[in-house]
Computed example of a mutant assay.
Amino acid sequence: MTQAPEPRKIHQLDARSLRGLAHPLRMRLLTSLRFDGPATASQLAARLGESSGATSYHLRQLAEYGFAEDDPERGKGRERWWRSVHQGTYLDDQLRTDPTPEVRGALNAYLHEAATHHAQELATWLGTEGDWSKEWIESSDMSDFTLQLTPAQNAELGRKLHELIESYRALAPDEGTPDAARVRIHLHAFPTKPGADT
């Protein structure tokens, strides 16, 4: 019987931590630590095509803002390993409507980097899907829909989609299950003006 997963640790962004995270390299570093696991600054530099000086500096910044920490179980001698403190990040609606110029600037940088990352992930899948099995190719999805909704209905739809997706965490197969893979799911729901979707 599959055991229910432990609750995920989610970091709720505030104005300070948003400003600390809203940098392209910091976001890429944090994503790598979350997806690929603990690493040293040198390993992350090689993964991301950056200098180890840059990754070291931005890892220290991530630690200062509460996103990354030392992984003492792995470090030996002068080798410093880093790990993510949380499994996810939550952007509060209050930050999305904050009129402060510093917060607006950080929010725009954060959201645009996240959207760029989503596009890169999708492009990577499209460029490599031939490396996957027929079953994975047929089970993948790249759809879009247009609905006429009120803000309340859009919020309800988002909540229901999140609940459905989260319910699959308890169904996750055990490590080493044949043909199981990590699956990325992107959700984007936003209004458009007439003529914008033609």
Rank of each mutant, 00 (worst) to 15 (best):
L147K: 11
Q153N: 03
L62I: 07
I137N: 08
V103L: 01
A180Y: 10
A4G: 07
S52M: 01
E79H: 02
R26Q: 05
S167M: 01
G105S: 09
Q148E: 15
H186K: 08
A45R: 00
L111Y: 12
P101C: 11
A114R: 04
M1V: 15
R78T: 06
A180R: 03
G75D: 09
R182G: 06
A109W: 06
S139N: 03
I10W: 09
D144S: 13
L149N: 09
P7L: 06
A170W: 00
H117V: 08
V85W: 02
T124R: 10
F190Y: 13
T198M: 13
A115G: 02
A15P: 10
M142D: 14
R47D: 11
T55L: 01
I137P: 02
A123T: 11
A119F: 11
D92I: 01
D174S: 15
A119T: 14
S32Y: 04
A172D: 05
R19C: 15
F145V: 13
D144W: 15
S84M: 10
D92H: 08
E129M: 12
A54H: 00
S84P: 04
P151Y: 06
A39N: 08
P101A: 11
E121G: 13
Q61I: 10
P151V: 11
L30N: 13
M27I: 07
T2H: 15
Q61C: 05
A15V: 07
V103F: 03
A196F: 13
Y65A: 08
P151G: 12
D70Y: 05
S51D: 01
S42M: 03
E166N: 05
F190E: 13
P5V: 07
A63I: 00
G37R: 01
Q3T: 15
R19G: 14
F67W: 03
W136Q: 09
H117N: 13
D71E: 13
V183G: 03
I10N: 04
T124K: 01
P99V: 05
L187Q: 07
P38R: 03
H186L: 12
G20A: 12
N108W: 15
A15M: 06
T146E: 13
T177P: 09
R8M: 13
L48R: 00
E79D: 04
D174Y: 12
T55S: 02
P151I: 11
E102I: 09
T100C: 07
W125E: 11
D141P: 03
T55A: 01
Q148P: 08
G158E: 01
A15C: 05
E69P: 02
P24T: 05
L30E: 12
L59N: 02
R182T: 12
A22S: 14
D71R: 06
L18W: 06
S167R: 00
A39Y: 08
R60I: 00
G195P: 07
L157Y: 05
F190S: 12
S51L: 00
I165R: 04
T177F: 14
A123Y: 10
L95N: 05
G127K: 02
T89F: 06
P101M: 08
T146R: 14
T40L: 05
L30P: 04
G66K: 04
T124S: 12
E79V: 10
G66Q: 04
W136D: 06
S84T: 12
R34G: 10
E156C: 01
S140T: 14
H162A: 10
Y90H: 05
A115N: 06
D174H: 11
T124Q: 12
T124P: 04
